[in-house]
Amino acid sequence: MTTFKLIINGKTLKGEITIEAVDAAEAEKIFKQYANDNGIDGEWTYDDATKTFTVTE
Rank of each mutant, 00 (worst) to 15 (best):
M1C: 05
T2F: 09
T2K: 03
T2E: 13
T3G: 12
F4L: 01
K5P: 01
K5W: 15
K5M: 03
K5Q: 09
K5R: 10
K5A: 03
K5N: 03
K5L: 13
L6H: 00
L6I: 06
I7W: 15
I7A: 11
I7H: 09
I8Q: 10
I8G: 03
I8Y: 14
N9A: 05
N9F: 14
N9M: 13
N9L: 15
G10V: 09
G10Q: 09
G10Y: 13
K11S: 07
T12Y: 07
T12C: 05
T12P: 07
L13E: 05
K14R: 04
G15V: 06
G15L: 14
G15I: 10
G15Y: 08
E16P: 08
E16I: 10
I17C: 01
I17V: 10
T18L: 15
T18E: 15
I19F: 12
I19T: 09
E20K: 01
E20S: 03
E20I: 07
A21N: 15
A21S: 07
V22C: 03
V22H: 06
V22G: 06
V22R: 04
V22P: 05
V22F: 11
D23W: 02
D23G: 15
D23K: 08
A24G: 10
A24R: 10
A24Q: 12
A25Y: 15
A25K: 15
A25C: 04
A25L: 14
E26L: 04
A27L: 00
A27T: 02
A27S: 05
A27W: 00
A27I: 03
A27K: 00
E28M: 11
E28R: 15
E28N: 10
E28A: 03
E28I: 10
K29F: 02
K29L: 08
I30C: 02
I30A: 04
I30G: 05
K32C: 03
K32W: 08
K32Y: 06
K32D: 11
Q33D: 07
Q33A: 12
Q33V: 14
Y34F: 07
A35L: 11
N36S: 07
N36E: 11
N38F: 13
G39L: 07
I40F: 09
I40E: 04
I40G: 02
D41E: 15
D41Y: 11
G42D: 02
G42W: 11
G42S: 06
E43K: 09
E43H: 10
E43F: 02
W44G: 00
W44R: 00
W44Q: 01
T45F: 09
T45R: 10
T45C: 05
Y46S: 04
Y46W: 06
D47V: 09
D47Q: 09
D47C: 05
D47T: 04
D48I: 06
D48S: 13
D48M: 08
D48P: 08
A49D: 13
A49L: 14
A49W: 03
A49N: 09
T50F: 05
T50W: 06
K51V: 09
K51C: 04
K51H: 05
T52P: 00
T52N: 10
T52C: 01
T52H: 14
F53H: 06
F53T: 02
T54P: 00
T54R: 15
T54H: 15
V55C: 01
V55I: 10
V55E: 00
V55Q: 01
T56V: 15
T56C: 03
T56D: 06
E57T: 14
E57F: 14
E57H: 15
E57S: 05
